[in-house]
Design a protein around this nucleic acid. Sequence first.
DNA 1: AAGAAAACAGATAAAAACATCTTTTTTGTA
DNA 2: TACAAAAAAGATGTTTTTATCTGTTTTCTT
Lengths: 152, 152
Amino acid sequence: MLSNACQYAIRSILYLSIYSDKDNKIGVKKIAEELETPQPFLAKLLQQLTRSDLVSSTKGPNGGFFLSTANKQNAIWDIVTNIDGSEKFDQCFLGLARCEDKNPCPVHHITAPFKKKILADFKDKTIAVFTEELKNSRKIISLKEFDALQQN
Amino acid sequence: MLSNACQYAIRSILYLSIYSDKDNKIGVKKIAEELETPQPFLAKLLQQLTRSDLVSSTKGPNGGFFLSTANKQNAIWDIVTNIDGSEKFDQCFLGLARCEDKNPCPVHHITAPFKKKILADFKDKTIAVFTEELKNSRKIISLKEFDALQQN
DNA sequence: AAGAAAACAGATAAAAACATCTTTTTTGTA
DNA sequence: TACAAAAAAGATGTTTTTATCTGTTTTCTT
């Protein structure tokens, strides 16, 4: 449903949303270690996200990646479309070209409500709001094997 | 979530479940046309499914593929594991190695109920039951662009 | 018995996804 | 100003998935 690349991207941005700001930039090396993702691959991804204004960065010593206030006004959906495009996510569970309420695939009635719900979450909430909710949930939320928020 | 191959396989077996039996075998050519899938690729798939006893076949003139009564006692899940393996389907939406109720990813609370529901459907119902429900649903159910059951 | 229809088997090819490597550019700091 | 740290850019490599092609075997029909 989501490519590896897109999963890495979402996790990176949530990570940056929690731990970075313009005064606390984080390098690829650190991010890749924390999220347990392949470093050079993630570097490429972050470059692309930066070009697309979904992430901010500065070069040189003490440089790194961070989310500006503007960056945090984007939605998860913006990441998805930037990396995977919009069609891929919306595809039918069984791969049918035309699968909708009136012409459903055999599992449409199961998948449709789910897709609606997660699309709403991804499209409507900004990264800022999304992250705030995670923090307020008081649950342990993980971006890798263990709790990423607890260290905060 | 499901590979192309697995989607083709599920659709083929549902198709065969509806239209075939030991006295009405269907050739790859026909199946591929009806489901609008690449023919040689589907042929390979059906071979594998046949080797795994998920589908039956006979060679020679008037030969083809069909579902025996025994074949119809399998579940959709058996197809999934045969083609994609069991891990792939069960993966975390964000790709985390360990994502569970106690250590959830940021969208676990949305994805978990969905996965539970569709896994239940896929594991518990036999192909026979699944197909029967489709027929009884009185809805238009599609295995390709248009209604596949209506022709019945 | 001959021929044809169909699945079966194995090899190969093409495309996409995933990942890495090397060099260049920018920029802060000693 | 020289150096080093970090991202940026471009080229390349690997693996997986998807797909096709060619020939073989089985089996029905005439």
